Simulated scan of single mutants.
Amino acid sequence: MKDWMIDFAEFAREELPEDSAERLIGLLRPAIRLSAAEDGESVAGRLGGLPKLPDGMAWPSLPDEGRPMSFVAELDCGVLARYEVDVALPVAGTLLFFATTDARQHQVIYVPRGTAVAERPAPDDRVEVYAELPLAAATEPTWPPRNHPALVDVFGSLDEAEDLVWHHVLDEDTGEIFEQQLRLFEDGGRDGPPHQVGGYSDGLHSPIEAVAAHAAGTGWYGDPAFQEEACQWVTLLQVAEDTRAGMIWGDGAWLIWGIRKDHLAARDFSKVHLSVQGH
Rank of each mutant, 00 (worst) to 15 (best):
V79S: 01
T139N: 11
V117L: 07
A103Y: 06
F98T: 08
F97D: 02
R120T: 15
D125K: 00
W143G: 12
F97T: 02
L182T: 08
E128S: 13
E172D: 14
F178D: 01
D86I: 00
E176L: 15
R120V: 15
F178I: 04
P141Y: 04
H106Y: 09
E84V: 10
A150V: 06
D153R: 14
P121D: 14
V129N: 09
P134K: 11
G93F: 05
F98S: 02
H148R: 05
P90T: 11
A103T: 06
E172Q: 15
V85I: 12
P90Y: 04
A137E: 03
A118Y: 00
R82L: 11
W143P: 03
E132G: 00
P141H: 09
W166L: 04
T142D: 05
E132S: 11
L135E: 10
V169S: 12
A88T: 03
P134F: 00
A136I: 05
D159G: 10
V154Q: 13
V169W: 08
E176Q: 15
P149F: 08
E176A: 15
G188V: 04
A88H: 10
D153T: 14
I177V: 15
A138M: 13
Y83W: 07
L89Y: 08
F155K: 04
L170Y: 01
R183N: 14
R126G: 03
E160L: 12
V108C: 00
A118L: 03
G114H: 12
W166P: 03
Q107L: 12
H148Q: 09
E119S: 06
H168Y: 11
R120F: 01
A131G: 13
E179K: 11
E162A: 10
T174E: 13
H106M: 13
A116G: 10
S157M: 09
W166D: 07
L133N: 10
A116Y: 06
A81M: 04
E162Y: 01
L151Q: 03
V152K: 03
V129R: 07
V111Q: 00
A88P: 05
E84Y: 00
T100V: 10
I109A: 00
H148V: 12
E186C: 00
P121Q: 15
Q107A: 15
G114V: 07
V129C: 06
G114Q: 09
A99I: 03
